[in-house]
């Protein structure tokens, strides 16, 4: 293991963390508004499918990202119809949303591409390299534009949630919807918009994998990353600033695993893949009763 190993590891950490940052920020908006959105896994999945299909059809990767955002917002709208308007149990409506969006992506993928022996592929995003000539900074800053945007989104999310009236509305319907309603805030509308923003962000995380990293759409493309984001939220204590550190920590573990696989280490690589999940469970056990999110999460609001 030499110096270049660590440089490569740092660069890979940011790359792996990117979809987690999008997903976790998306979930943050939902939970801050009082909705646990278990639709995240499916929303990331449909984002990665729609992003890929539109990029493939139009030849424009950015149009793919845009289409993914739209698909994710629609996913949020579906979730809001059940969890917000109809006041259905959030666990079940979230899982239902995930199952629907996953099934829909698989179905539409087959409709568009049929069954092919060769995985359909596109030319993915190229990494930007602003410091190409510099020795250390060069490789570290060689990242996708979507990674830079993800990192910029964290202070933006903080600003929206804590420095705008709309952010105040989101946080108040997540803490005390009755009081928010009494103060003239339309609880249903704010929650719906928060779910749509969240869905759009989650979908970009999915699209990053298909049109950023892989250049193709595979059925295992998300493989539980959405659930990791649900855990990351708790890890981050529902604060935008901590989302980055949690995502980077998880990214580091996965990046390390990818690198160690090639060095012929005897440990099964699955041990590393399982590590973030186990770390989260241990962290939850330690935090225990202190890990409390916004007060109104899981409580459907019914206007009298």
């Amino acid at each position: 293991m030499d110096f270049n190993f660590f440089i490569g590891l740092i660069a890979a950490t940011f790359r792996v963390a990117t979809p987690l940052i999008y997903g976790t920020l998306g979930e943050l908006f939902c939970e801050r508004a009082g909705i646990l959105n278990l639709g995240i896994e499916g929303t990331m999945f449909i984002g990665s499918f729609v992003g890929f299909a539109v990029a493939d059809a139009t030849g424009s990767l950015w149009l793919g990202v845009l289409a993914a955002v739209v698909s994710g917002m629609l996913g949020g709208l579906i979730m809001s119809l059940f969890a917000v308007r109809l006041g259905v149990n959030q666990h079940v409506s979230g899982l239902g949303t995930t199952l629907l969006l996953t099934g829909l992506s698989l179905f539409l993928f087959r409709v568009v591409y049929g069954i092919q022996r060769i995985q359909p592929a596109i030319k993915p995003f190229q990494a930007l390299s602003p410091f190409d000539d510099l020795p250390v900074l060069g490789p570290i800053f060689q990242q996708y534009a979507l990674t830079y945007i993800a990192i910029l989104l964290i202070p933006l999310a903080w600003w929206v949630l804590y420095r705008t009236n709309f952010g105040l509305s989101i946080r108040s319907v997540g803490e005390n919807p009755e009081a928010a309603d009494a103060a003239g805030i339309n609880v249903y509308r704010v929650r719906t918009i928060a779910l749509m923003i969240g869905g759009g962000l989650m979908a970009v995380g999915g699209a990053f994998l298909s049109i950023g990293q892989l250049g193709s759409f595979t059925f295992g493309i998300i493989s539980g990353r959405g659930w990791v984001c649900i855990a990351l939220i708790i890890f981050a204590n529902w604060l935008p600033s901590r989302v980055l550190w949690g995502a980077l920590l998880f990214g580091l573990i996965e990046a390390l695993q990818l690198r160690l696989q090639t060095t012929g280490l005897k440990l099964p690589y699955e041990a590393f893949l399982a590590l973030p999940y186990i770390v989260t469970i241990i962290a939850l056990a330690i935090a225990g009763r202190n890990a409390t999110g916004p007060a109104a999460v899981l409580k459907p609001y019914k206007r009298e």
């Binding site: 493989s223 539980g224 099964p268 041990a271 399982a274 999940y277 989260t280 225990g288």
Partner: peptide, 27 residues
């Protein structure tokens, strides 16, 4: 046990453990 002893939300832990057992089986 995490739920009844330490009040850890079971939705997140059961979801995460679904992935963990699949990793164990894959290994």
């Amino acid at each position: 046990l995490l739920k009844v002893k330490l009040a850890v939300d079971e939705v997140v832990t059961t979801l995460l453990l679904n992935s963990v057992i699949v990793f164990i089986i894959s290994a």
